[in-house]
């Protein structure tokens, strides 16, 4: 979509776009090149000799069962967080779309958790689920359930999924509600007149009209779960017990910052960047098609 009316001159616009371009090159492209370079080299234990090793870092990365496990774990974690956040967000949005008394208050109550920091949601969920001090965790323990996420990997995973999804529900709520409200009332009326009601009307009329919003939310939720949850996971489990909650980003941090294995950590960064760019391209293709239609 190109404008017809524009301003003349090329020096001013180049000056205007310069700050963003400079920041983009310094903080995106330069680091990306550094990562690409380091992913192809290996530094000896004393940090003196750097040797070019080709794709060896990538080969050993993908041969590493721990890394493959981390990939699978991340996929499962992202899918669980997305399903929970989107599902709950949809249920709440459908309820809030009705003409209810106190509707505005309900909306505020659903929207504010958008402001909660991932690391803060971790603290809140520790207070709920910790087996010694947690409100729910202690209840479970005193009722004979062996609940201890510091020892049990599955329980730890459940806990980071809950805390991560909890924070993301409101984002999904906002978008699904906006999507529902953009459906023309006439369409719903027509479906009602044709005798489509309840769940059937929702499935055959509302859901197809919502599907672009839902696709968008799935991509956003997956990206959120993959990257923004570092604070949640690190504060609750630091990726443990025994890597049970170590997602790919946690592993990048752990290998790079804690264990100082730069070659492997950079190779992991490169893999993640390629993954994110692919997701972006997928979404852009889809969004492009939609705005073109």
């Amino acid at each position: 979509m190109e404008r017809r009316t524009i301003f003349a001159g090329w020096k001013l616009p180049m000056l205007l776009v310069a700050p963003q371009l400079v920041l983009t090159f310094v903080f995106f492209y330069w680091p990306a090149l550094v990562a690409a370079y380091e992913s192809l080299t290996r530094t000896d234990a004393f940090g003196i000799h750097v040797t070019f090793v080709g794709l060896a870092n990538f080969r050993s990365l993908f041969a590493d069962p721990l890394y493959r496990a981390a990939i699978l774990r991340t996929v499962g974690f992202c899918a669980a967080v997305t399903a929970l956040a989107l599902g709950l967000g949809m249920v709440l949005a459908v309820a809030a779309d009705r003409e209810l008394r106190g509707r505005d208050l309900y909306r505020v109550l659903m929207i504010w958790p958008y402001a909660v920091a991932p690391a803060v949601s971790a603290v809140l969920w520790i207070l709920l689920l910790n087996p010694q001090i947690g409100f729910v965790g202690r209840f479970l323990v005193t009722h004979g359930i062996r609940w201890d996420y510091a020892l049990n990997g599955n329980q730890a995973m459940l806990m980071v999924v809950l805390a991560s999804a909890w924070k993301q529900v409101s984002y999904n709520f906002i978008f699904v509600l906006a999507g529902l409200q953009s459906i023309p009332k006439a369409v719903i009326e027509a479906a009602r007149m044709d005798g489509a009601r309840g769940w059937y009307r929702f499935r055959t009329v509302v859901l197809p009209l919502l599907s672009p919003t839902l696709f968008f939310l799935i991509v956003v939720d997956l990206v959120y779960a993959a990257f923004d949850t570092f604070g949640t996971i690190w504060a609750m489990t630091e990726g443990g017990p025994a890597q049970a909650t170590q997602t790919l980003v946690v592993k990048v941090y752990n290998d790079g910052v804690v264990n100082l294995d730069l070659g492997s950590s950079s190779a992991q960064s490169v893999v993640l960047m390629v993954g994110v760019v692919a997701l972006t391209a997928l979404q852009f293709r889809f969004l492009g098609r939609r705005s073109g239609a």
Binding site: T24, P31, E38, V223, S269, V277, T280
Partner: peptide
């Protein structure tokens, strides 16, 4: 050049950005 960085969160480029 700007658009490509759309969804590249700081989390994936943490170590190289630190080096820069």
């Amino acid at each position: 050049a700007i658009f490509v960085t759309l969804m590249l969160p700081v989390e994936v480029r943490i170590i190289p950005t630190y080096a820069v």
